[in-house]
Design a protein around this nucleic acid. Structure first.
Lengths: 130, 130
DNA sequence: CAGGATCCGCCACGATACTG
DNA sequence: CAGTATCGTGGCGGATCCTG
């Protein structure tokens, strides 16, 4: 995650693209959005996240959390109890970012599906499944 | 590009996350956004794209174009002239998507920069530059 | 409970050379 | 001009074992 978007597209006013790439890079992790989704609703414990994200490994979860925290998208709270307890919460910034990204679902809704393979089969006629 | 977002987060209403992941996956290529940025302003030729995106290789450019086309974000027009001529143009869908993504720059503007390494240095005070 | 350490496989991306 | 073919690489993600 957090790709170090060097961004060389200095040709035009693509400076905009660089910013977008940078922002997206901060949530580019395979599970980043899932973690944000869970933590935007309030503090969540490590184990809870693990359960909420079936298939994620402890290592990746840790890395994802650290990464998001480093980008100011997550706050990490440690309770020095006997059995360790750590809670993660999305920051206000993260919630705003997530909300912005949520707009993508609206776009997706307007555009049903991507044609699997237009290689040789041209979908010239606007024939949609639904 | 076009990560095959299996998306298993079926735990909650994370279905939303899956959609977002799917959409972002279609422009996850390192140069996808750059290509879209260039083609949203009108038809652009292969060589022109190559020049507009310093650092990209022919292979990757080709793959990126094919990928975007397969996702209905780009239209490819071939002119069977003696020296081959091919033009690429972003579809309406692509322009809408790009516009939506553009909103990220606004978010970025509101949140100056990500602390390089909050490992041990806590930026506890909300001291912002502007 | 919440990680850290290690090893490994896959895939996106890159460099180069050749072609219709 | 606009690709295709081949080879090589880095880094993300996964599996497993160990620890405060």
């Amino acid at each position: 995650m957090s790709r170090t978007t060097a961004c060389r597209t200095e040709g035009v006013e693509e400076r905009e693209v660089c910013v977008m790439l940078d922002v997206l890079g901060r949530v580019s992790g395979k599970w980043s959005l899932g973690v944000l989704s869970e933590t935007t609703r309030g503090p969540v414990r490590f184990a809870a996240l693990e359960r909420a994200l079936p298939g994620i490994s402890r290592r990746i979860l840790t890395l994802t959390l650290r990464d998001l925290e480093a980008n100011g998208l997550l706050t990490r709270t440690v309770y020095p109890t006997v059995p360790p307890k750590v809670e993660y919460t999305a920051t206000e910034q993260a919630r705003e970012l997530y909300a912005q990204l949520t707009g993508l679902t609206a776009w997706a809704a307007r555009h049903p599906a991507a044609p699997a393979r237009p290689d040789h089969a041209r979908p010239d006629a606007g024939r949609h499944p639904a």
